[in-house]
Design a protein around this nucleic acid. Structure first.
Lengths: 226, 226
DNA sequence: TCCACACTTTGATGATCATCGAAACGCAAC
DNA sequence: GTTGCGTTTCGATGATCATCAAAGTGTGGA
């Protein structure tokens, strides 16, 4: 994945609009993307072909429709990183605001939490002295290890995984860091097991249950009410 | 600052190379940037004009040279953010930050001093009543001539040189004037003879010795401690 | 005065690009 | 089949682009 390629592809307003439309994880048909980007279907098709060719998008055929979505979570991370660097593009006819707001509160980022909930979680764990923010990663303190193990996470096992343990991940909607890596994934899994959050299969939306609101408040001092 | 603009500008390999060359904060002349980007001076000039126009770079003239640097720290943050999203491009000769900071304090500009030390020197000489700042040049007062002769400069001989006597030269890192021309060159030569500064042959780095720090303080009331 | 130098502008060329109309394709319903 | 619809391909157009050679500009030095 060439960064220069990504920049070239996203440097065009129509293609940026397309990328922005599918950033939430939704797969949208070509005609819808053409409408949102403000170009004709032919032009959109041209752009979509380039983006697929450039590895930015993936396409799935379903009957007469072609659904376009981001090619991989890595691409989503790159685009979200770009959003964090500047204001998100102002585009006409943004989809339903409810979806965007929902994503802003909580969504999945690959296999860990993102959105304001994830940022609040990272803040809370630092405030409690469970985490230290180092250069590009988080460190779990002795206090934090006790707390996390008590919460049901096998922290020593997480440390021995091949992947990075607790990556610092920058959020596009918050422009602040949250917890990725093995620890971030384990936390989201634990939240799901506890019934605190519910993940929508197929996209990246996350719902926080009332049990989750209570638990997050009691365990982490996080106010997860909308 | 439009993100889309930045992406378009950086989507070109030559422009990306130029941005990467100045990411450390250093200001480089157009010819050097052309070499590093692997394009002819004409092409580089074209790209540089676009980048200045797009608000990515700023340019300052010093004698016959034009030094290009990043327009603002915010731009540097955006570009470094982009780099963090992917592997940085493999390019020749990127200055490290320590070098950049050193250059900010003192460096040579053609054959005279530049950087904050040079600006402080110009300020000090004006404060002591040795120099007057005219339209585009400095004038040495009678008091200043005595002082400079006592310091070891043959001011009358400098006046009779063909080149401009005491040119006002604008600094990219300070955005304030310092002394160029024959007087600027003679001052730097005298500082070198006195062992106050040491010049790195081949580049523009200047080191101030401890003797230099003492001398600059006693003679010119300049605090040259880092 | 003339030259050297750093850099820019101009001009030309070939390439790529974005865009849309027209036509074609693929698929499903009728 | 035929029709309708979503999408792509083709073709044409006008725009922008990157590139470099050649000429021009401005500056300082001899």
């Amino acid at each position: 994945m060439e960064l220069s390629n990504v920049l070239t592809l996203l440097g065009n307003p129509a293609r940026m609009a397309i990328a922005w439309a599918v950033i939430g994880g939704d797969a949208l048909p070509a005609s819808e993307l053409a409408y949102r980007a403000g170009v004709t279907p032919q032009t959109a098709s041209h752009h979509l072909a380039r983006m697929v060719d450039g590895g930015l998008l993936a396409v799935e055929r379903c009957l007469r429709y072609r659904y376009y979505r981001l090619a991989s979570p890595a691409i989503a991370e790159i685009i979200e990183g770009l959003m964090a660097l500047s204001d998100p593009p102002v585009l006409k006819d943004r989809p339903d605001r409810a979806t965007v707001d929902r994503l802003r509160i909580a969504r999945s980022c690959y296999d860990h939490l993102a959105g304001s909930l994830a940022v609040a979680l990272a803040d809370a764990l630092q405030r409690k002295g469970w985490l230290d923010l180092q250069e590009r990663d988080y460190q779990v303190t002795a206090l934090g290890e006790n707390g996390l193990v008590a919460f049901g996470l096998d922290v020593p096992a997480l440390r021995h995984q091949q992947r990075l343990f607790a990556r610092r991940c920058i959020d596009w909607s918050e422009r602040r860091p949250h917890i990725g890596g093995a620890l971030g994934a384990a936390l989201m899994t634990r939240f799901q097991e506890s019934g605190w959050i519910r993940k929508n299969p197929g996209d990246r939306k996350i719902w926080v249950s009332s049990a989750g609101q209570q638990g997050l408040w009691k365990t982490f001092d996080i106010d997860a009410t909308p």
